[in-house]
C-alpha cells in the first residue's frame, strides 16, 4: 500500500512542473466557461425569474457549466492515451514485470495526478467563475465535504473507463479512431455536454442507468442539492466497484494477449 501511496505522491508532485500549460489551460477553460454560461443564460431570457427548467434555475445551470470546466482536467473526459503509448513503445512489458499490481500502479498514479489538478485547475477555475458570474454554493458544510469526496470517485470511474479504452490498444494498436468515440461516450453520458435532465425522457432514463454519470453529473447534483448525499455517494461507490471489476476482467485478457505476442 505504501508503494502505491508513493506513486500517487510522485505523480501529484509532477503536475506542478507544467506552469505555462496550467495557465494556458485555465485561460481556455475560462473562455469556454464564460461562453457556455452566456449561452445557458440566454435560454432563460424569456423565463420568469428563478424559473426552474429540467431541475435547473439559470444560476444553477451556470454553476453546472463552471463545475464542468473545473472538472475537465482532474477527471479527464477525453484524450488520455498514456497506456497505449507504452503499448506501442514496448514499455508496457517493463510495467507489467514490476512487482506490483498493474491496475493499481496506474490508478494510484492517476489519483495523484487528479488531486494535483484539483488544486492547479479545478479550484482556480471555480474561483474565476465565481468572480465573473453568480454561482450557487453547496448549502451546508456536509455538502461541501460530500462534493470533495465525490471527486476522487469521479476520477476513479473515469480512470477505469480510460484504462479499458487504452487496453483496446492490445488489439487495435491505434487510438485515433476510438478516441473520438470516447469523447462522445464520456461527453454525453457523463453529463458534461448538457445536464442529463435536459434530454428527452427516453434518452435521460437510458443515461441514468449507466455508470458514466458518476464522472460529472453526480458530483454536480451533490453540489446543487439535487440528490441526497447518501444516495449520490452510494451510487458512485457502487459504480467504482463495478468498473474496477471490469478493468481486472479486461486486463486478464489483455495480459494473455501480450504473452501470445511473445512478450
Amino acid at each position: 500500500m505504501r508503494m502505491y501511496y508513493e506513486l500517487a505522491k510522485r505523480s501529484f508532485q509532477q503536475q506542478f512542473a507544467y506552469r505555462a500549460a496550467t495557465l494556458a489551460g485555465l485561460f481556455t477553460n475560462s473562455v469556454f466557461g464564460v461562453m457556455l454560461s452566456s449561452v445557458y443564460l440566454a435560454l432563460y431570457w424569456d423565463k420568469p425569474e428563478n424559473a426552474s427548467v429540467g431541475g435547473f434555475t439559470a444560476e444553477q445551470a451556470v454553476t453546472y457549466t463552471w463545475i464542468g470546466q473545473a472538472l475537465i482536467m482532474p477527471v479527464i473526459f477525453w484524450g488520455w492515451w498514456l497506456i497505449i503509448d507504452t503499448i506501442r513503445s514496448g514499455a508496457v512489458v517493463m510495467d507489467m514485470l514490476k512487482p506490483m499490481d498493474y491496475f493499481r500502479y496506474w490508478l494510484s498514479r492517476d489519483l495523484g495526478r487528479g488531486a494535483a489538478q484539483v488544486i492547479t485547475r479545478g479550484i482556480p477555475t471555480l474561483i474565476i467563475g465565481s468572480i465573473l458570474f453568480d454561482l450557487v454554493w453547496p448549502e451546508s458544510w456536509q455538502r461541501w465535504v460530500a462534493f470533495l469526496i465525490s471527486v476522487p470517485f469521479a476520477v476513479t470511474v473515469s480512470f477505469c473507463l480510460r484504462f479499458m479504452f487504452n487496453l483496446w490498444g492490445f488489439w487495435l494498436l491505434d487510438h485515433r479512431g476510438i478516441s473520438s468515440l470516447v469523447i462522445l461516450v464520456t461527453g454525453v453520458f457523463s453529463g458534461h455536454l448538457l445536464p442529463i435532465n435536459w434530454y428527452p425522457p427516453a434518452i435521460r432514463d437510458f443515461i441514468n442507468v449507466l455508470p458514466f454519470r458518476s464522472m460529472m453529473m453526480t458530483p454536480v447534483e451533490i453540489w446543487l442539492g439535487q440528490v441526497s448525499i447518501a444516495r449520490g455517494l452510494a451510487m458512485q461507490v457502487f459504480w467504482s466497484a463495478v468498473m474496477i471489476g471490469c478493468c481486472y476482467l479486461v486486463l486478464h485478457f489483455a495480459e494473455r494477449k501480450v504473452v501470445v505476442q511473445g512478450g
Partner: peptide, 8 residues
C-alpha cells in the same frame, strides 16, 4: 435537447 427544454 436544449430546445426540447427551452423555446428560444
Amino acid at each position: 435537447a436544449m430546445f426540447y427544454q427551452f423555446d428560444s
